[in-house]
């Protein structure tokens, strides 16, 4: 039996998965064009800068675990961590990754280790690269600030889910003269990142990072499918707005089912 009030959610979830699968299928014949995302392009530049300066690159996959509704952002952040690790492995640049939640730690460690393995630099991987801090918000924040200050990093990448510590991180990066790249789906923290960081990945830009970086056909196809789902959502919103203006509540009633 379907739970009342969740029918529309189920229908839209199925539509989104359907458009995603359609996008993946279509990508096999024609690769979709994904617009340039400045924040992701800047990662290569930031790692290059750190390499030239002989300093470390710092990144963190946010303050969230993989068992909540923000898991998608954490997985997307881990994709970016993997990409950065490949670059630091390639250029022999020091990498520091701070992890907040215990269940993200093994994934982050595996991601970084694999990146060094793929680049043929397994011996360069150091256990000190991926550091568990604390799932306590301010203990994690204090640890991150300490690492940025002590290591005098040249590039900081804050991606994933963040809370009020976001502005502290961005300012800490600025204080040590580092390039700051941030990305989050949290609408409360986006203004802080946008104000204080050099580049910001806004909402879905973070979630498409994996596809954008890997250039993988299936993942790029899913981004195309994602856009189709957005178009459908936009159509429903537009129709709902017009009908509501005409005092017809059909769409509102359907969505509340």
């Amino acid at each position: 039996m379907l739970i009342e009030g969740r029918v529309a959610g189920l229908v839209f979830t199925l539509i989104t998965i359907g458009t995603m699968l359609y996008g993946i299928n279509k990508a096999k014949s024609k690769l979709p064009n994904v617009r340039r995302i400045a924040g992701l392009e800047a990662i290569d530049e930031a790692v290059g800068r750190a390499t030239e300066m002989g300093k470390a690159v710092f990144c963190t996959p946010g303050w969230a675990d993989i068992t909540t509704s923000t898991a998608g952002a954490t997985f997307a952040a881990l994709d970016i961590v993997g990409h950065i690790a490949r670059l630091t492995a390639r250029y022999d640049t020091r990498l520091v990754v701070a992890v907040s939640y215990p269940n993200v730690y093994p994934l982050a460690e595996q991601t970084v280790q694999q990146a060094y393995l793929v680049e043929g630099k397994r011996e360069k991987y150091d256990q000190d690269m991926v550091r568990f801090t604390s799932s306590e918000q301010y203990a994690y924040a204090a640890a991150v600030l300490g690492m940025i200050q002590r290591e005098k990093v040249a590039a900081c990448v804050f991606v994933g889910q963040f809370a009020s510590e976001a502005v502290d991180f961005a300012e800490a990066a600025v204080a040590v003269g580092s390039i700051a790249i941030a990305g989050t789906t949290s609408t409360y923290q986006l203004p802080f990142f946008a104000a204080a960081c050099d580049y910001t990945l806004i909402g879905e830009e973070l979630l498409t990072a994996g596809a954008y970086i890997s250039k993988d056909t299936a993942r790029l196809g899913s981004v195309h499918g994602q856009d189709l789902a957005k178009l459908i959502a936009f159509g429903v919103m537009l129709l709902g707005a017009i009908l509501c203006t005409l005092n017809i509540n059909v769409v509102v009633d359907l969505l509340s089912k």
């Binding site: 998965i17 998608g72 994709d79 595996q110 973070l206 498409t208 499918g225």
Partner: peptide
């Protein structure tokens, strides 16, 4: 929508980066 797609990709095994 992005979250649904990321989750679906992982659950369907399309995305194995983790």
């Amino acid at each position: 929508i992005g979250m649904i797609c990321v989750s679906a990709r992982i659950l369907l095994g399309i995305d194995r980066s983790h």
